[in-house]
Simulated scan of single mutants.
Amino acid sequence: MPYANFVNNLVSKLRVENVIFREFFAEFIGTFLLVLIGNGSVAQVVLSGMKHGDFFTVNMAYALAVAFGVMVSGGISGGHINPAVTLAMALAGKCSWVKVPVFWAAQYIGAFVASAVLYGVYKDALTAFAPEPYTIQTAGIWATYPQEFLSLGNALFDQIIGTFLLLIIVMAITDPRNMEVSKGLYPLYVGLTVGAVGMAFGFNCGYAINPARDLAPRVFTAIAGWGGQVFSAGNGFFWVPIVGPHIGAILGVLAYGLTIGYHFGDDEYVVTQTKGKFFD
């Protein structure tokens, strides 16, 4: 069986034993899937003039993209696929601070690579869409932009609330002392949560609720031909989907703890998350 031996030898050489590297790759591929599928649905809607999808299909695609991203990465890294989630988990003592910069790097790089792949897939469609395709309308395929009426303060509140809701529900889903949700259902419920947030709060500025999902694609568009307008648009809106989700995630974890998590009795307490994962 020379072929089988060759494959086995190749696999053994490719296998990564270092836990940090394995978790980096997991967060990278999970975020890659999230951004590629989620933003791919936006590209289809925009470039087809809404003939192939609408706001509802975008929300459904993002819900599934999150579910798939968490499903693929969850057993290794916990499936954060969101820098704001990683920060909140670290503050809650459920993720080692050493892993925070590693996870952040993986998430931002994964989102950037997914943006480049998406551009390659839809490059011809983008060119056919308009004589001058590099407008804020098409930039919105990759990153979020506010409605014209929206103030920066209102946009910031929007992002805080969206991520606040996400983290409250994520904490409940992953708390074994609460409803004892099966681990196999975690990705589905997290994805449905993102879809629900989008359908409730997607109008103002696109419910990024994830700094990596927004900033890395925005940087890609700046490099790929859209230029500095991607940072100046919306009265300099770009910082809102970075700052807002971090604040909202921290408040969400705190709110869950103050209303639910801190009040279980000692007999109900179960030691979990010892490796900084959702799924330990």
Rank of each mutant, 00 (worst) to 15 (best):
I223C: 00
E268C: 04
A255Q: 07
Q273R: 15
W226V: 03
G252F: 02
N235L: 12
P217K: 02
N235W: 12
Y269F: 15
N235V: 10
K275D: 15
I223G: 02
H263F: 12
G228C: 14
G234P: 09
D266Q: 10
F264M: 11
A216R: 03
A224N: 04
V271I: 00
P217W: 08
T259W: 10
G225D: 12
I223T: 04
L215H: 06
Y269D: 06
G234I: 14
I242D: 10
F220D: 13
V240A: 08
Q273H: 09
T259K: 01
R218P: 01
G234R: 06
N210A: 05
D214E: 01
N210E: 05
N210P: 00
P241A: 00
K275L: 08
L254D: 04
F220W: 08
V271Y: 13
G261C: 11
A216T: 06
V271D: 02
A233I: 07
G265Q: 05
D214M: 02
W239Q: 14
P211T: 03
D267Q: 14
P217N: 03
Y262F: 14
G234W: 07
Y256T: 05
W239I: 08
E268T: 00
G252V: 15
R213A: 06
I223S: 06
V240L: 12
P245A: 03
G234Q: 11
R218D: 03
G228Y: 13
F237V: 09
P245D: 11
V271S: 00
T274N: 07
W239M: 05
D267G: 14
T274A: 00
V253D: 13
I250W: 10
A255K: 07
N210Q: 13
I250Q: 06
T259R: 00
V253F: 10
I223Q: 04
T259A: 02
L251N: 07
D266G: 02
I242H: 07
P245R: 13
F238H: 13
V240I: 15
T259Y: 06
G252K: 03
T274D: 01
I247K: 08
Y262G: 08
R213W: 11
R213I: 02
G252P: 08
V253A: 15
G265Y: 09
F238W: 13
A224C: 07
V253R: 12
T259D: 07
I209H: 02
T259P: 05
H246F: 14
I242P: 04
T259Q: 02
L258A: 05
G252E: 11
P211Q: 04
T272E: 11
V271C: 00
F238C: 01
R218F: 04
G225Y: 10
D214K: 09
H263K: 08
G228Q: 11
R218N: 07
T221Y: 05
H246N: 00
Q229Y: 12
F220P: 02
I209P: 10
V270K: 11
D266I: 08
H263E: 02
R213G: 01
I242W: 11
L251T: 03
V219Q: 03
A224P: 15
G248H: 14
G236S: 07
I223A: 09
R218W: 03
D214H: 00
G261W: 15
R213H: 04
T221D: 10
V271E: 01
V230K: 10
G252W: 14
A208M: 01
I250M: 12
L251H: 11
E268A: 13
F231L: 11
V271P: 06
F231H: 05
P245T: 04
G265L: 09
G261S: 12
G244W: 04
P245S: 04
G236E: 08
N210H: 13
D214I: 06
